[in-house]
Write a protein that binds this DNA or RNA. Sequence first.
DNA 1: GCATTTGTGTACCGATCGGTAAAGTGTTTA
DNA 2: TAAACACTTTACCGATCGGTACACAAATGC
Lengths: 189, 189
Amino acid sequence: MSRVVTERKDVIAMLAEIFREHGYDGASLSLITEKTGLGKGSLYHFFPGGKEEMAEAVLSDIAAWFRTHIFDALREGEDPAEAIEAMFAGVDSYFRQGRRLCLMGVIATSGGHDRFARDLNGYFTDWRTELAAALERAGAPTAECSALAEEIVGGIQGALILARSLDDPGAFGRVLSRLKARCLMAPAS
Amino acid sequence: MSRVVTERKDVIAMLAEIFREHGYDGASLSLITEKTGLGKGSLYHFFPGGKEEMAEAVLSDIAAWFRTHIFDALREGEDPAEAIEAMFAGVDSYFRQGRRLCLMGVIATSGGHDRFARDLNGYFTDWRTELAAALERAGAPTAECSALAEEIVGGIQGALILARSLDDPGAFGRVLSRLKARCLMAPAS
DNA sequence: GCATTTGTGTACCGATCGGTAAAGTGTTTA
DNA sequence: TAAACACTTTACCGATCGGTACACAAATGC
């Protein structure tokens, strides 16, 4: 049944926060052991590939979350406008109203981003593609959809950086609602 | 007169590219000595405070560039609309059409961002403030200006991350031109 | 000329880096 | 009950980390 000891998925969740907070290079093994409460032995038991496998596991975990909670809804939702609205709500919640960074963005600006280029590319490509398709289904002009999706996906990343840099999480929500307004406006245009 | 040997400002320019490319933690002293061609002795002669002073110098150098080339023009330009247009052109050029990351953004997503929080906050605060003021002078509705400026400054950061992650520098220019269009649209609304 | 400043190269420091090895502790299964 | 498995602890590895000390060379000032 439910065990008290730490399972792999719990470790991944903790690792995600550590990488988010300190970046890939900044997340040293000693920091990881300290924050997770797990010794190196346990860590290398779960992730024989070491730090790189840890980050890989976290990234693919995040990618899976977005796929099931955001992208799939955009693609399969009956009402595309509703799915887009749900996307904004989900994003706001996932990034804790601007208090949490996007690990994909963190890795993208990290030195060793080449190592994870495939994950990053897949994540942003999927998001852009699915959002563009949903926008079109919602009635936005075909020519507009791809560029608008690009603007929104990028805008979310930028808003997170802005909120963090200004030490003003509220900036995230403000930008988010403006981006959402653009979506609702597009079909009418 | 002009010397062949490396001057402090040349070192700062090289350091900027190294930090951009590898992040703060990823830019090791050995990497810095290799890329700059300067030994530790020279480095610590220019920057007695070590790596932290190097980053500090780079950040204040960047802040100064934006102040003189972007912010001042936004504030003092006779034609605010023209100054905004120049801002977009300057930004596109500065970030090499999306092939260069913003070091402020890189540091913001870096673990040791607390150390440079003041620089980051100043940079983004100034940009937002000056752009909002220019927008208002250009005829945008007062209530709109601050939020629009926030959206644009954030949008630029996000576009850089997107361009890097998608390995598609063109995405930067596309988002940039859409953001610019929003500025030109605002006064009319 | 000589002294001073400015810049450089080399060797070294302790601390920490990511990673390994292997003995030990449970818990599960046959 | 005993072998098998899952997980942890501890000690250790060589490499690299950021930083220091100091002798040394090149330019500069008088």
